[in-house]
Amino acid sequence: MIGDDVALPVLLGFGHDGWALALIAGAGLTMALSLTAMAIGTVLGALLTVAQMSRRGWLAALAQGYGLVLRGVPELLVVLLLYFGTPGLLAAIAALAGLPAPGSPPAFLTGSVAIGLVSAAYQAEVFRGGLLAVPRGQVEAAIAAGMGPFTRFRRVIAPQVLHHVLPPLGNIWQFNLKDSALVAITGLAELMRVSLVAAGSTRRPFAFFAAAMVLYLVLTSASSAVFRFAEARAGRWAGGR
């Protein structure tokens, strides 16, 4: 009745009793989750970088503190706290505004925000390093040459920062991809969760975890190929090294 007495090739196949489509769909959701988390991390990370370099002491300290906390707490706890904590938090905020409780946000959203919050702390460090790598003299020279702030950013700062940040960003992306597996505990049917459900209900853990490992390897190596390509392009853009 429940995946019982079905041969392993059938369980791993595309048929009615097979989990292949579910695993592939899970890999798709893992990808979507990681991309959303990365985007959240990039936006928040850039804001944190600006805050860190701010002349307002309290703002810089706030950004610094954020980084320390989010890099010092296990990602698993960040995911758990957000998943269980947000319904109460949202209800409290809604109560302040006199609105009914909005219910708990979807697992996809809390999961990607949780991974994104951690990602932001690491991305902020990378952006800061990238900005510091642009020699001060170049910026001054660009000002002397009469470049406006926008042109300066586009022609002088951005290409060099990009060249510096792409390799570490590639690393962070890989961490995002692997951290997305933690969202499995919220019940979201991403790759890790699907493999766990399949392993539990068919009682064939080795086969399903191995299949999930292969799919993760496909995702990580394909995306690292994309990053290598981008790095080569950015290298040429920054003056070909």
Binding site: G28, L29, T36
Partner: peptide, 13 residues
Amino acid sequence: IARFLAPGLLLVL
């Protein structure tokens, strides 16, 4: 639903 609409999931949810 989530599986087949994964890319647009944010909107759906």
